[in-house]
Design a protein around this nucleic acid. Sequence first.
DNA 1: CGAATAGTCAAGTTAAAACTTTAGTGTTTG
DNA 2: CAAACACTAAAGTTTTAACTTGACTATTCG
Lengths: 102, 102
Amino acid sequence: MSDIAKIFHALGDPTRRDMVERLTDAPLSVSKLAEPYAMSLTAVGQHLAILEAAGLVTTQKTGRVRTCALAQPGLDALGEWLAARRSPWARKLDALGDMLDE
Amino acid sequence: MSDIAKIFHALGDPTRRDMVERLTDAPLSVSKLAEPYAMSLTAVGQHLAILEAAGLVTTQKTGRVRTCALAQPGLDALGEWLAARRSPWARKLDALGDMLDE
DNA sequence: CGAATAGTCAAGTTAAAACTTTAGTGTTTG
DNA sequence: CAAACACTAAAGTTTTAACTTGACTATTCG
């Protein structure tokens, strides 16, 4: 699964997208992050693992609490993908470059 | 389902994301769009409906052929969402505005 | 006009995600 | 040191989404 595939798949789920939105404001522990959702802590942990694998969230464990924060790599990759669709000339240049490489 | 939810859900699927990527280069008929995929034309039509509902693709039927092209509204909405995560100060200003409204 | 083309509709099947339960680890607190 | 806390792992269930089949409509071509 490519990076961009992981990112879009991760953000395709409403709960995960909401988590990212809430982490925009401030870092949160797993428990705090889980509070608003009507699901088990385990389920939240699973969502978190997906966000982390996509490079959208980083976490670090101190003692028994894991703190989650927004990560740049995922957002940056998303920005690049979007830029390529919004300025088609950039994509055409890429295609030209690929052609010249052959 | 909110606009941004529709957009991320739509792009969360690999086939639909590939469709959008191919439409970045040029508009295509449904049949041409379907060619690379090992699935029925019906399935492609279903994917297309989801992309259209998300504002990522527009289509128009002329005679018996439907031509599909990339649409701005979806990409713009995605850009706005992303901008809000990448510059947290913007989001904090929004929160301040909401607070002052009360 | 008949056949081929391009796409669509409704309904059912299959495959993938999300979520749960149960049980457990390491960490702090009283 | 026992109990509460914060999370984690494995395995099974349920829900959702993707995809198929078969039948059908409208358009173009010979």
